[in-house]
Design a protein around this nucleic acid. Structure first.
Length: 456
RNA sequence: GUGAUUGUAGUUCAGUUGGUUAGAACGCCUGGUUGUGGUCCAGGAGGUCGCCGGUUCGAGUCCGGUCUUUCACCCCA
């Protein structure tokens, strides 16, 4: 007999975990819908041509490929094998598991462009797969909760997203978090000012690590990536500047006197902040982090990331504006901005901070003890009567020993148990036992119902 | 993908330089209580020591491979 197992980086979710996960999903879903996003689902599998090349060379490696059905070798020849994995792959696989929700969304928009009225707001809650090495907070199968708006340049969308982030985490009772904000145009501006135009990608990869490895190591890496000593000197004030968001923006306006793009980034950020004031948030948790870079290549404007403070885990939410995501699929000039909540990481954060409400589980309120065939009919009638009153009820399916049935109710935290035996049928009153304080008494059906209802 | 690391009952973990029959707690089952759970008492079941191979008179313990866990790099939610 073999021992069963599940693939590395995947997990089962038991009833307790699902209750907590649904609590998170529901919170996010409600906020999305309140802000006018409609739900979309796309297939688990996409054609490989849709996925490859969208996430860089690294990303292509992390794609799960699906082997062609049937005799997948029938269309191959010996020379394909010797030509290497890449050539071989195209012959034996034409589908892959989705890597994120943004690219399938872009594909959807392009395919349905004529049915969609823009601006198009959609949310999507589905699992994605990455053939990564698993670590804490990093799985090979995990859920993303995306919301995107495409077909508008309005910076109101950015403000809306920031408001949604606040609403979701307030809803989840997570108070200590930071929304780190930046703008790709500001990053481009910096590379222009320090005389490293066009090296934006290298720049982003290096500075994104600042809080992790420190300034000296970042400078080392920049030099390794071909930045001059002069550039690093010019960069220094950006890292060293401290102050409020407005202070930073004022500083940047001065710093970007020679960079049109940089100034544009500052202007956009100012506009978002100005919109945001009208939302009258108590605390918007915003921080302008000039070292926030986010590797994803398709971002062009605002970028943001949410960190849970005091928990050793990566970002729990991320997103940004992209100007040309649909371009690769032949639809130009569609700008969009999106956000993605990482449920699996949020789960770990709430777990570590012990922030779940007392009962996330929707548990059964009352169990009817099974006393045998003759009593079952009375039991079923009561069962349905309780359910009609909106009470979650079940009857123990077997005529097992009382001890066994009571233990079951106890282990499942069922607060009430009803006993219908010979005594009860003779008097017409049913015995209701409160499993929390252990008290029990006989009631007429109506009193029994109100007793259970009033206990909440 | 690179370099480390982990794996012993359902769960959390002990297990000495390689040496007889691999232990504990909790959980589970049975009984004390034929209509009463959560406390208590008595008893019981449950392990191919991740898997495959090697060294050895002898391997949970040493070696190799493989899978899994965790960590760093890379990247990311």
């Amino acid at each position: 007999m073999q021992k069963p197992s599940i693939p590395r980086g995947t997990r089962d979710f038991g009833p307790l975990q699902m209750a907590k996960r649904n609590y998170i999903f529901n919170t996010i879903r409600e906020v999305y819908e309140q802000y006018g996003f409609a739900q979309l689902e796309t297939p688990t599998m996409e054609n490989l041509s849709v996925l490859t090349g969208k996430y860089g060379d690294e990303g292509d490696q992390l794609l799960f490929k699906v082997l062609n059905s049937g005799d997948f070798l029938s269309k191959t020849q010996a020379q394909d094998y010797s030509a290497g994995s890449k050539t071989m792959l195209t012959k034996i696989s034409e589908k892959g598991l989705r890597y994120d929700l943004t690219v399938p969304f872009a594909r959807y928009v392009v395919m349905h462009r004529n049915e969609i009225s823009f601006p198009f707001k959609r949310y999507q809650i589905q699992p994605v797969w990455r053939a990564d090495r698993p670590q804490r907070g990093r799985y090979r199968e995990f859920y993303q909760c995306d919301a995107d708006v495409v077909g508008t340049n309005s910076l109101l969308c950015e403000a809306e997203i920031i408001a949604m982030i606040n609403e979701v985490f307030n809803g989840l009772k997570l108070s200590d978090f930071t929304i780190k904000l930046n703008n790709r145009k500001i990053l481009v501006g910096i590379t222009e000012v320090i005389g490293a135009e066009g090296k934006e990608a290298d720049f982003c990869v290096a500075i994104d690590k600042l809080d992790k490895i420190g300034l000296d190591k970042v400078n080392e890496e920049l030099i390794q990536r071909g930045f001059s000593q002069e550039s690093i000197k010019l960069l220094k004030p950006v890292f060293e500047f401290e102050g409020t968001i407005n202070d930073k923006l004022a500083f940047l306006k001065d710093y970007f006197s020679a960079s049109e793009t940089g100034l544009q980034g500052v202007k956009e950020t100012e506009e978002i902040l100005s919109h945001l004031q009208s939302y009258e948030l108590e605390d918007n948790h915003l921080e302008l982090d000039l070292t926030l870079a986010r590797g994803l290549s398709y971002y062009t404007g605002t970028i943001f990331e949410v960190k849970a403070n005091g928990v050793q885990i990566g970002s729990i939410t991320g997103g940004g504006r992209y100007d040309n995501l649909t371009g690769v699929f032949g639809l130009k000039d569609i700008s969009g901005v999106g956000i993605s909540f990482g449920v699996d990481r949020i789960y770990d954060v709430l777990e570590e901070l012990d922030l779940y409400p007392e009962s996330t589980a929707t548990q059964v309120q009352v169990m009817i003890v099974n006393f045998g065939e003759e009593m079952m009919n009375k039991g079923i009638a009561l069962l349905q009567g309780l359910r009609k009153e909106g009470i979650r009820a079940e009857m123990y399916p077997d005529t097992a020993k009382m001890k066994k049935q009571m233990s079951y109710a106890n282990n499942l935290n069922i607060p009430f148990v009803v006993l219908i035996g010979e005594d009860e049928i003779a008097t017409g009153n049913y015995t209701l036992k409160n499993m929390i304080d252990g008290e029990q008494a006989a009631y007429k059906i109506n009193d029994l119902i109100s007793k259970i209802k009033n206990s909440r």
